[in-house]
Design a protein around this nucleic acid. Structure first.
Lengths: 196, 196
DNA sequence: GGACAGGTTGGCAGTGACTGCCAGGTAGGC
DNA sequence: GCCTACCTGGCAGTCACTGCCAACCTGTCC
């Protein structure tokens, strides 16, 4: 059972990767909006119905793997030394994400470019990021010595939202510099301006 | 020409207001997703085609007026005394927004609730907010004594994004407290936690 | 080897948001 | 009254996405 499940998983992973690949190629060729799911399905050699089973939405073709990264982020932040400052713990989390993606820098730039230039993709991405923020709340509350209630604490939420805001700022500027700027440096600049 | 345009504008405003009203009623009755544009059109007494001419998308039925508020925000921030700190200028902008809406608190709560509970609405809202942020960049750069280039400055973008993050935090918590909390106080808490 | 059960795939028909096009109406300037 | 211009409604079409059903493939138990 384990072996077969692993086998299936592997073939599934391969199919998913190939679909993403053809999709990104098509997006690069014709643009995101102009590419239909039918085209992606045909080119990738699966039925449209199966395509929608693999990726619930068209946007997931681009930001589908975000969910896994979110869990990694939360886990990493949670694993940081409790003595470390909240800011440093969150930075450590994002630093881990930087190296966790299994994509080449070119591909990351390509995907990020897609996300930042396409409104519907961008909002989808923001929505996913928001889920990360929510799942970080208890972790950060604990770290800040705040008792977790049913409704999050404004201080914890504010800190989390701010770090994400600066990360987002850095990402966008990194993309607009064509990947030539140092994203980490941009993040530090943004956060320093905020915290004086 | 002026008079007639005003007349048209007025009737147009009335139609728009009535459509929004029926839409919000339907959303409250059946939920946002479960309500179709055809229903809204029929109930409001316009054709589906005209409904889509008034509101380009279903989401605009809820967050359509945001664009006007964005311009007001930028204008207000720009009009603040140059001696005032960046943070205070931005706060002044949002304070103006608080009183600018022509809705009752109940309605604001209803709309905010819709936005925060519905993912597609929420991301649409975030996207609009992002456009506000972009248009604020030159204003804030000037205020911070930074020369505006083609690509925004990380410090200015970071500060703007942070203020929006805290405003968003305060709004969400305000909604989750059923409108019973002081949104302004929540904002101050969030920002204070960020800036130590 | 053959029946069986679980999960996977493909086609098909449908819904709902949204758009382009065309015909008809309606208000304002002459 | 006439013409121009804009607004409106209806119609048909596209596209993302879903439910349903039949075919299928795979490993299992007899």
């Amino acid at each position: 059972m384990e072996k077969s499940s692993t086998l299936w998983d592997r073939s599934r992973q391969a199919v998913v990767a190939e679909i993403v690949d053809t999709a990104l190629t098509l997006f690069a060729e014709q643009g995101y909006e102009a590419t239909t799911m039918a085209q992606v399905a045909t080119r990738a050699g699966v039925s449209q119905r199966s395509l929608f089973r693999y990726f619930g939405t068209k946007e997931d073709l681009v930001c589908g793997e975000q969910d896994a990264l979110g869990e990694l982020l939360v886990a990493t932040v949670e694993a940081q030394d409790p003595g470390m400052s909240t800011w440093d713990a969150l930075r450590a989390g994002f630093t881990t994400l930087l190296t966790a993606g299994n994509h080449t820098p070119q591909r990351v730039l390509e995907i990020s470019g897609l996300i930042f230039t396409n409104p519907s993709l961008h909002s989808r991405y923001l929505e996913k990021r928001l889920r990360w923020q929510r799942s970080l709340v208890p972790v950060i509350e604990k770290r800040m010595g705040i008792e977790s209630g049913e409704i999050p604490d404004a201080r914890a939420m504010g800190v989390i939202a701010t770090v994400f805001a600066c990360v987002d700022t850095a990402s966008e500027l990194w993309v607009r510099h064509g990947g030539k700027a140092d994203a980490f440096e941009l993040y530090e600049q943004a956060l320093a301006a905020v915290r004086d």
